[in-house]
Design a protein around this nucleic acid. Structure first.
Lengths: 228, 228
DNA sequence: GTACACCAGGTTGCATGCAAGATTAGCGCA
DNA sequence: TGCGCTAATCTTGCATGCAACCTGGTGTAC
C-alpha cells in the first residue's frame, strides 16, 4: 500500500467520525472493541505485524492504538510483546473502588444540579431499558447499562467525570462479563437502578450517592463470585 | 544517528528507570515535566521535528510521548499540530470535581483500612512538611503536597485509585499554579491538612471524606480567583 | 540426566521518507 | 485600503527498513 493513499480498509468505520478520523483512531476503537467483546482473551499476545495484516494498515497506526490502549490499561507492554491485560480479583476490586467513588459522586451531582429534563430522561431510559432486558439477550443488558449510566453522568454535567467513568466502564461491565450474569443477577442489578432513580427524582444527593455506591458494591460481589 | 544505537541524549534520565526504559518513556516524562513546570505555556504549539531536534531523538518517540500526553489530557492534537492544553475556569472546576470524588474516597478508605503505620506516616509527612513550607519557597509546597497526598493514597491501598489521582494531580496543583499562592493561602491549605490528619487518626471515615472534600473545595476557590 | 551456552527465529524500538492536508504569505482586484 | 484567491511552505499521518533484544530450542559438557 502506498503512503498517503486512502483505500477501503478492514476496519469498521461505522462509528461517527468526529474529525477527519485518523487510521490510528480507527485502529484504537477496533482493537478496544475486540478486547472488550472477548475476541482477544486476557493474556493473549498481540503481534503488531499480525494486527497490521488483519486490519490492512501498517504497523504505525497499530502501535499508536496499542499505546492508547495501554494508557487505558487494557493492554500491557511486557518486555517485548503486547498482552491483553488480565485482572486479578484484587485489581477488579480496586477498579470497582474507583467506580464507586466516581459514580457515587456523579449521582450526587445529578441529584443536586441536574435539570428536570435530564432526570426525566434517566427515568425514561431506565423504564424502557429494564423492560427490554428482562426478556432479551444478555448483550442488551450492557447497552442498557451504558445508556443508563451515561444519562446520570450527563445530568451531573461534568464532562471530565463523564470521560473518566466511560473510560473505566469497559473494565467493570463489558460484554464478556455480562455473559456471566444469571437472570436473577440481572434483575437484582436493575432493582438497584430502581432505587437510584427514586433518590434522584427526590433530589436527595446523599441518598443518591449512597444508592449508587451500594449498587456498585453489589455488582462487585456478583463478579468476584464469577471470577473465582 | 543510527537506528538502534544507544547514545547519550539530551533527556534527563535521572528518574529511576524501572524496566529498560524506552526513549518514548523518557520523552514522555521529559515533556510532561516541561509542561507542568510551565516551560511550555498553555496554547503553545509543539512541533514534533523541533522537539526531536532538541531532545536528540527521532520523531517516533516524540509522537509516542505526545500520544500519551494526549491521553492524560495535557496536550491536544488539533487538526494538524499539537497544542499544550489550556483549561477554562469551567474545566478547572470539573477537574476539581473529579479530584473531590477521588481524594474524598481515598481519605475514607485510608481512615477505614489504612494500617497504623501508614497513618502515622501521613502525620509525620504532614508535620515535617508543613514546617518546611511555611518559611520556604513556593516550589517546596508542591513537593510537600504531593508527598502528603501520596501518603494518604498509599494508606488507602488502592493502586488504581492512586494512579488516577496521581495522573490528575498535575492539572490541579502543579508548579505553575503553586507560584500563584500567597503565604496566607498556603497556610490555609495546610490548615485543611491539619483537620484531615485529625479525622484520619480518629479513623472516622465519614469525617475524613468530608474534610478532604472541603479541602479540595477551598483549593478550587483559591485557584478560580487567580484564574479570573 | 541436568545445566549451561550458543544459535536461530521472531518481535519490537527507533529512524526516516513521502505525500496529503493545513497554514501562511503574497498578490491581484474591488 | 481591505478582501479573497492562489501558491509555497510547514507539519503531520502513515509506511517501511534496520538492528537490538527476547525467546525457544538444540547441542555439549559434566
Amino acid at each position: 500500500m502506498q503512503p498517503g493513499v486512502r483505500e477501503d480498509r478492514a476496519i469498521n468505520t461505522s462509528t461517527v467520525a468526529q474529525d477527519p478520523a485518523t487510521l490510528s483512531d480507527e485502529v484504537y476503537r477496533s482493537l478496544r472493541s475486540s478486547i472488550v467483546k472477548g475476541e482477544h482473551r486476557p493474556n493473549a499476545r498481540l503481534i503488531e505485524a499480525e494486527l497490521a495484516e488483519r486490519l490492512q494498515v501498517s504497523r504505525t497506526p497499530i502501535r499508536d492504538g496499542l499505546l492508547r490502549l495501554a494508557s487505558d490499561g487494557l493492554v500491557l507492554s511486557r518486555r517485548r510483546g503486547w498482552v491483553v491485560r488480565e485482572h486479578t480479583p484484587e485489581e477488579i476490586s480496586e477498579i470497582y473502588g474507583v467506580r464507586l467513588a466516581l459514580e457515587g459522586y456523579a449521582a450526587r451531582l445529578a441529584a443536586k444540579v441536574g435539570d428536570d429534563e435530564a432526570l426525566a430522561h434517566i427515568a425514561s431510559v431506565h423504564h424502557r431499558g429494564s423492560d427490554d432486558v428482562s426478556r432479551d439477550a444478555r448483550e442488551r443488558l450492557v447497552d442498557y447499562n451504558d445508556l443508563f449510566h451515561d444519562a446520570i453522568v450527563e445530568a451531573a454535567g461534568n464532562r471530565r467525570l463523564a470521560d473518566l467513568i466511560r473510560q473505566n466502564r469497559e473494565y467493570y461491565f463489558n460484554y464478556r462479563i455480562a455473559a456471566l450474569y444469571s437472570d436473577e443477577e440481572a434483575s437484582l442489578s436493575i432493582a438497584g437502578h430502581d432505587e437510584l432513580v427514586r433518590t434522584l427524582l427526590a433530589r436527595d444527593g446523599n441518598a443518591a450517592e449512597q444508592a449508587a455506591r451500594e449498587h456498585v458494591g453489589e455488582a462487585l460481589t456478583v463478579i468476584l463470585a464469577k471470577v473465582r
